[in-house]
Design a protein around this nucleic acid. Sequence first.
DNA 1: TGACTCATGTCAGCATTCTGACATAGCTTG
DNA 2: CAAGCTATGTCAGAATGCTGACATGAGTCA
Lengths: 150, 150
Amino acid sequence: MSQDGAGIDLDTSLGYLLKEASSALRVAMEEVLRPLGMNVTHYSCLELLAQRPGLSNSDLARGAFVTRQTMNVLLQALERDGYVTRPAAAPVGKVLPTRLTPRGRRSLEKATVAVRSVEVRMLADMTDAERSAASRILRSMIRSLRADDA
Amino acid sequence: MSQDGAGIDLDTSLGYLLKEASSALRVAMEEVLRPLGMNVTHYSCLELLAQRPGLSNSDLARGAFVTRQTMNVLLQALERDGYVTRPAAAPVGKVLPTRLTPRGRRSLEKATVAVRSVEVRMLADMTDAERSAASRILRSMIRSLRADDA
DNA sequence: TGACTCATGTCAGCATTCTGACATAGCTTG
DNA sequence: CAAGCTATGTCAGAATGCTGACATGAGTCA
């Protein structure tokens, strides 16, 4: 039943393990972000803006791994609630550079502490060598998956 | 701006890399499953049933990393369309053991080929040692994230 | 046995994200 | 310069998954 060519063994498949790890990370992050009224995409957006102020809607969407339509909906809510600002008209082209407001920055600070604790917990039992290996391996997977999308 | 304690450096964060890899995998899988009229959860459900016939709704939900409510909706659709069967009444307790129909098995066969090709591509540039390391590291992350959910 | 706890299946409503579509701006190329 | 291609922002509708809630069956324990 395990490896006879008629299926993908879920107990040993790296794809399945990757999904499992990602699911565990998402659950853990949402658990600590929920009390702050945030979800993972929401947090990702603020963190991206803190590190790279002036990113466009499409940039943020790529950075948070959602579509630009999804990010647009989120940005409109964040703007309405005063966490970010965008110019009324595009300085150049159609791109609207987005920036955190002081309120957005304060909100992010609490979230960053919470998220950092999750990441620390995730890496608790790993050596430095293993962390380096993890980084290299994950980058390799990403590169290979994105190569020739045919 | 990078590691001054005021944020999580997205360029080096293993959590971010994990999410990026998982996103790339999901996109690649949905790309090959879409022509077959399936999504990832749909495929996961069929693959689980092929390897462990008689799983309950809740078992399948845990294996596919969704809630049992979500899996219940999917199972009702799969049952209606003749891909799986469940007894009308529970043989014991409330648990309804689910099984693939021949039609479900045929549908899964094509999907497995497609998914396998994605996994092969993902692992293309990795040595056997790296694959072993990846498995060990991902399991460690999962274990740590699930430990003391406080 | 009876109370308690936990797991299960299921319904309903909501949140989130996606696909499809459109107009428009910038770049490239003949 | 004009045409073509790509990227962007945005709206609308559909798909997908989640939380909350309820009834019920099984196991535990005093």
